[in-house]
Amino acid sequence: MSEQLTENEDSFPVKKHTGFKIWITFIIALILIPLGVYSYFIIDSVRNYTNTVKAQAEGQSTVNPELFRLMKDKSWLESRVKMAASDSVGLAIDLENQTIQLELQGVVVMKSKIRDYLVSGFFRQMEGNVYFNTFGTPMTILSLQSSIDKNRFKVVQAPKSAEEADAMSAKKDSVSKQDVYWTVMLDRNIELNIQGIDSIKDAQSKYKFGQDFSSKRKIKNILSSLRNMADLKKPDYIPEILISIPESEAKSILYALPQKPMITIRI
């Protein structure tokens, strides 16, 4: 009897300790298992994306590197000629020569040197027919988000007297310093991010967007990832291009672009 009691007394703390260990293991598993499954889904979504793109691309996939370079030049010019036929301002991004330029009816009206850029691995891997299928014709913007209002118009009530007009002209608008960055979704499922940065050091750090934009982006990513995990849904893979150019030029380009501009890219 006394032996049984001792056994029970001894086993009680051991059982409690084991329960705690199970609980901790459960929490860790609760975090690691969805993370593992989600990582697998993410990798799979990249593979699916590239396979879909490959399946959609017509023509020869294997191209001699020398010919490939020439075909890229041809594609770049062809796309710009198509853009020149339009009445509106278009954007031509040449990552090979690190320039970004605004073109109006075929005339380069503004040219800026790209300070730094980053592209998704997808673009580094693409060759032949996939490249021409993606960049062979100008792209258009599906949606645009920017840190500054693209619409610069302000509404002013006409003064009722000369005194009121004098008072209005004496009132000056305050000019606040704002980060300039904008992000667009292109019709080929590519996200283009342009940030205005005046220091080369800043340009070399990834997503050196303003604090507000950066935080919103992180929160959006976390929420969509958690939603996908909860729904056991594969996330979408969207290849990205991030370009850093001088701030005033980023602003000029943003204001100059019409609602649905054409964009040509060479990588």
């Binding site: 993410i42 490959k54 294997t62 891997q125 990513n221 990832s225 958690l226």
Partner: peptide
């Protein structure tokens, strides 16, 4: 989610060659 998964996604090991050009 913020730092590691995007890098895994961009890794050359994971991205299959979009075209296996050896021409």
């Amino acid at each position: 989610i913020i730092f590691v998964i995007p890098n895994i996604q961009e890794s050359a090991y994971i991205l299959p060659a979009v075209s296996t050009a050896q021409a």
